[in-house]
């Protein structure tokens, strides 16, 4: 369970104040105008920025004192998720060991993930040779290998074309079912996600404005 209580930070005359509770195993879509604070919310949970005040509990443990690497969260960004000079295999392996020296069991685990993602023929390809969809699959592979229970997606597929976006959502749905993960996903095309998310959170002026059932996303609260 993720519990935010008046979590606030001031950035360039923009102040947030997030209070919200997100239950385990949910898939929450985060919607709102650009500049409303969607990315800030995700960055606060990941620990990339420190709050000025408030509390952030994950499974009843205060996360503020933990650096990003010790929090049970992993992130997928819109772009630049992968190191261009490393191979598919290496990009996934670095979540287990940054120096890429893996044990036999770990190597097997990476191979399984690569098979799961249908990237078997690309294992040793360089990132530059992959399509946009393949790249995001590799990034998902990195997240799977880290075994973290909360996944933060910051408009992860807005660079892909629409049918590919649905394909990726299907893949995440599959991973979520197999691995029991909680997902927070910011998205600016909510219509595509109504069949996937448990509910939406509407963010406005740095606050969680209200919670919406998937089909209610059209209610004009912008």
């Amino acid at each position: 369970m993720i519990n935010l209580d008046s979590l606030s930070i001031e950035l360039d005359n923009f102040k947030t104040d997030f209070t919200v509770q997100i239950n385990r195993d949910k898939w929450v879509g985060i919607i709102g105008k650009s500049g409303a604070g969607k990315s800030t919310l995700l960055n606060l949970i990941a620990g990339f920025i420190y709050p000025d005040s408030g509390s952030l509990l994950i499974d009843n443990i205060e996360m503020k004192k933990y650096p990003p690497s010790r929090r049970p969260v992993s992130s997928l960004f819109q772009e630049n998720n992968l190191f261009p000079h490393l191979s598919v295999y290496q990009n996934i392996a670095l979540a287990i060991r940054p120096n890429l020296k893996l044990s036999d069991i770990e190597i097997k685990k990476i191979s399984e993930i690569i098979e799961y993602l249908n990237l078997g023929s690309k294992t040793h390809s360089s990132i530059g040779k992959l399509s946009g969809g393949e790249r995001q699959r590799v990034a998902l592979g990195r997240i799977m290998s880290s075994d973290k229970k909360i996944l933060l997606l910051d408009e992860p597929f807005s660079q892909l074309d629409p049918n590919l976006r649905v394909e990726m959502l299907e893949l995440i749905k599959q991973i979520r079912k197999d691995k029991n993960i909680t997902i927070l996903m910011s998205i600016h095309t909510p219509a595509e996600a109504i069949d996937f998310v448990s509910n939406f959170l509407l963010i406005k002026d740095g606050k969680v404005c209200r919670e919406l059932a998937p089909q209610d996303y059209k209610i004009d609260l912008y």
């Binding site: 990941a46 650096p67 990003p68 690497s69 992130s75 940054p98 880290s146």
Partner: peptide, 8 residues
Amino acid sequence: RVTIQNNF
């Protein structure tokens, strides 16, 4: 951020 999250 990837390096930070993965404890490099």
